[in-house]
């Protein structure tokens, strides 16, 4: 279990990274936390000729909030996100999901951008990014571009990143007034990739500005975005389930309708330990649980 030979480059600036990427193209691989890449190389499923280590590119790290937008640098570690008050205030969904990511040692090393770029279909960040409608910023020697999370994840370990591109940071619209987040996951062991997981954000309250001012008790659900992971090749937005809940209070019948809409949204793919039917069942159960917590305000 030894990696094949490779050259190792440790640039200090984004510009240097881009120069190397331009030179080596798909012969090169960017390494950040290395939590997925290194094992893959050690079992020789990946054998890049060149490793470009971005751990010393300081401009890629950090969390900032400005004018309603949360900006998370690609090199930001999972543990930093888990501990960040800025993240908790602007994107509480990320704070809720962070403890579910693997184990402490991995969270200390693994990065936000690395997880998105790896695009494991059972990992947490891609689903969260999808729910939050995050914008993923890519840069190459050719220029910069922005890709919506919904378009970014394309398949199992497949994203919109071109071989010469670097994921620099992600922008997330800050959570609005009256919105709540919810997160739930089922895994065989704590810290494992999810068998099935779900991330949700939406507003609970009466509709319209007046309703919001009155803060009526009989809250209704609005602008719900629900994404499941571990069920398909990429995070799946459950639009039919969300539609079944839109403008509705959460009660037994609306929840049931949403659960029954799930097969319209996706048919889960099986994995080593779980059949499609079991995953479909778990998706229904998790939807019920996450919506119940979110609706009753325990989710924020």
């Amino acid at each position: 279990m030894k990696a094949a030979r490779f050259d190792y480059i440790r640039p200090r600036t984004v510009q240097e990274v881009l120069d190397h990427l331009a030179e080596h193209g798909d012969e090169a691989k960017v390494i950040a936390g290395g939590q997925s890449l290194v094992p893959t190389m050690n079992v020789r499923l990946a054998a890049p000729a060149v490793l470009i280590d971005i751990n010393h590119v300081e401009e890629l790290s950090g969390i900032e909030a400005d004018k309603g937008t949360l900006r998370i640098g690609a090199l930001t570690r999972h543990a930093e996100i888990a501990a960040s008050e800025t993240v908790a205030a602007h994107a509480p969904l990320l704070s809720m999901a962070a403890p579910w990511i693997a184990h402490e040692a991995i969270r200390n090393r693994g990065t936000f951008g690395g997880s998105l770029a790896t695009a494991d279909p059972a990992s947490e960040w891609p689903a969260c990014a999808t729910v939050l409608d995050a914008t993923i910023h890519l840069v190459s020697a050719r220029g910069t571009r922005q890709v919506a999370a919904g378009d970014f994840f394309q398949g199992v370990y497949e994203t919109a990143i071109e071989p010469d591109e670097l994921l620099t940071h992600v922008e997330i619209p800050a959570i609005g007034e009256g919105y709540r987040a919810g997160f739930s996951e089922f895994a065989r062991r704590k810290g494992d990739y999810a068998s099935v997981g779900v991330a949700v954000q939406g507003r609970v309250g009466a509709s319209g500005a007046i309703g919001r001012l009155l803060k009526r008790g009989e809250g209704r659900l609005h602008d719900l975005r629900i994404a499941f992971f571990g069920v398909a090749a990429r995070p799946m937005l459950a639009t039919a389930a969300a539609a079944a809940l839109e403008e509705q209070p959460l009660d037994e019948s609306t929840l049931k309708a949403a659960q029954e809409a799930l097969p319209t949204d996706f048919t889960p793919m099986e994995d080593l330990y779980m059949s499609s039917a079991a995953k479909a069942h778990l998706a229904r159960v998790l939807l019920g649980r996450v919506m119940t917590t979110l609706y009753h305000g325990e989710g924020r």
Partner: peptide, 13 residues
């Protein structure tokens, strides 16, 4: 005794 086996035993899947 996996979740799959228990859910099957319970007739939920």
């Amino acid at each position: 005794m996996t979740p799959e086996r228990i859910l099957t035993a319970l007739g939920r899947i």
